[in-house]
């Protein structure tokens, strides 16, 4: 592998890790927001609480 190959490999690994972290963070944030919204809705209408 030439010098440019190593450069692209190094950048690819770093950017890949950052993108994976970003995507994971977005997914976790979306799930947490959904969970919080459901919790709020169940508190506002206690009769609809699902156990």
């Amino acid at each position: 592998m030439g010098a440019w190959g190593f450069v692209f490999l190094a950048y690819g690994i770093v950017w890949g890790a950052i993108l994976i972290y970003w995507a994971t963070l977005k997914r976790r944030l979306r799930r947490a927001q959904t969970e919080l919204a459901q919790l709020r809705a169940s508190e506002e209408s206690p009769r609809n609480v699902q156990t």
């Binding site: 963070l25 976790r28 944030l29 947490a32 927001q33 969970e35 919080l36 919790l39 709020r40 508190e43």
Partner: peptide
């Protein structure tokens, strides 16, 4: 933001 939401969920539960 994720940490804040998790804390709020924990407190509400």
């Amino acid at each position: 933001r994720l940490g804040e939401i998790k804390e709020e969920i924990k407190a509400r539960l």
